[in-house]
Design a protein around this nucleic acid. Structure first.
Length: 441
DNA sequence: GTCTATGATTGTGG
DNA sequence: CCACAATCATAGAC
């Protein structure tokens, strides 16, 4: 408290003494402030130093008395008003000079980024909780979710630090502002300080602190960027799908071999089934499915021979399911067909059984034309069965010339159809695995 | 270490 | 914008 008073006193003194208008005031004139040169300078400096050293020794009373004396001087009001006028003018010019601070684009960028990243702004619906829920929900392919939650956790940490620091800065700023304002208010008794001036001072302080805050924001942004890049890189790293997921995708692929282009809904469903959670942002999990199908189509087309074994496997698998499903459907809807498709396919669709398969397929196909109940499902069954049959010797010719392969006009899809027909046509006698990677390319 | 499989990215054409 | 084709880059097997 004493210190503060003394400092204030000294500030007031210096301020007054330093002002040209103050020449005639009662303050002890600064020694050797004017008119001295050369030899006298050393002495003056010594005096000044001495004064400075003894300033702190002055008692509070003495200082208060000086202050009082100053305030009571008969010229004070007049001089004060003059001072006010001068200050007002200079203040205006100063204000005019540094009027309006345009919103710093850099700061805006930082703010926007922090907002976008969820560091600033409102808490995003319990990020960690959501991540944990996602992790829990996606049992099989939890890798993504774990990484995701890890990312969220780190982000939350950054967010926390950011807010703590920001709060600290704000508090310090407020404290300092209050302090300075008190100081100025105190001083305004002895020197003219307009509210505007105080305002300006506060503005300066805020600017200073906001520049510090900007540094904080910048480093926070950097931290987020590093975090992001690390996790993005991690995400970019190729991670094989789980066996389950591959199986599901393959099943779909081979059961829709004539038109392996899943719709949005189908993709969504597949992604869900495969537990392909949000791997990047938004609907990217659909892109993952699209990628898979894109790759699969290309690679299948390029080297059908290589995929035949796999195709058989999945075709058989799906065919069994399909046959069962169809049987159930047929039985439920119209128990008129004694030749249920699964009659000859109890075990596996081993190649020698193809005769039965062919019949089965024909019956299925017939159903598909008249039985609405079986409807959409049939195409996949036909695809599957067709594939199985196409692998077998002897029936391909019949199939190749048979329109029933594309009962729903899927042949219109030239690209895929043309590309894959060779498999059924060119390799009538080749076993699975025989490498004939000619195809369209 | 190499080699293959495979998910992702990029460039191109319709 | 989508599919395709080529390519990259890495996981995983050996």
């Amino acid at each position: 408290m004493d210190d503060q008073a003394r400092i204030m006193q000294s500030i007031g003194g210096v301020s007054l003494a330093g002002h040209s208008v103050q020449g005639g005031m009662q303050l002890p004139p600064p020694h050797g402030h004017d008119g001295t040169d050369g030899d006298g300078r050393k002495q003056d400096i010594g005096d000044i130093l001495h004064q400075i050293m003894t300033i702190t020794d002055q008692s509070l009373d003495e200082a208060q008395a000086k202050k009082h004396g100053l305030n009571c001087h008969r010229m004070k009001p007049a001089l004060f008003s003059v001072l006010c006028e001068i200050k007002e003018k200079t203040g205006l010019s100063i204000r005019g000079a540094q009027e309006e601070d345009p919103p710093d684009p850099q700061l805006m960028r930082l703010d926007n980024m922090l907002l976008a990243e969820g560091v600033a702004g409102p808490e995003k619906g319990g990020g960690s909780a959501a991540a944990a829920a996602a992790a829990a929900a996606s049992g099989g392919a939890a890798d993504n979710s774990i990484e995701h939650s890890d990312y969220r956790a780190k982000l939350t940490q950054i967010r926390q630090i950011y807010h703590t620091e920001l709060e600290k800065y704000e508090q310090a700023c407020n404290e300092f502002t209050t302090h300075v304002m008190n100081l100025l208010r105190e001083q305004s008794r002895t020197r003219p300080i307009s509210p505007k001036e105080i305002e300006r001072m506060v503005g300066i302080i805020h600017r200073k602190f906001s520049s510090i805050q900007m540094q904080l924001k910048q480093s926070t942004c950097e931290a987020v960027m590093i975090l992001r890049s690390r996790f993005l890189d991690a995400r970019r790293k190729r991670r094989n799908f789980s066996k389950q997921a591959t199986e599901i995708l393959n099943e779909y692929f081979y059961s829709h071999l004539s038109n392996p282009y899943p719709s949005e809904e189908a993709k969504e469903e597949l992604a869900k089934k495969c537990s392909i959670t949000v791997s990047q942002v938004g609907s990217a999990h659909l892109a993952v499915v699209s990628n898979w199908f894109g790759n699969k189509r290309i690679r299948y087309k390029k080297n059908i021979g290589k995929f035949q074994e796999e195709a058989n496997l999945y075709a058989a698998k799906t065919a069994v399911n399909a046959a069962h499903a169809a049987a159930a459907a047929v039985q439920n809807s119209q128990a008129n067909s004694p030749t249920t498709p699964n009659s000859g396919s109890s075990g596996s669709f081993s190649l020698p059984n193809t005769g039965d398969m062919f019949l089965s397929m024909q019956s299925l196909n017939g159903d598909s034309y008249q039985g609405v109940q079986v409807g959409a499902n049939v195409q996949s069954q036909v695809d599957t069965l067709h594939h199985v049959i196409s692998q077998t010797a002897g029936y391909n010719d019949a199939l190749a010339g048979n329109t029933m392969y594309n009962p729903h006009g899927l042949n219109a899809n030239g690209g895929w159809q043309d590309a894959m027909t060779p498999s059924s046509v060119i390799s009538p006698t080749e076993g699975p695995g025989s490498a004939h990677s000619d195809t369209s390319n």
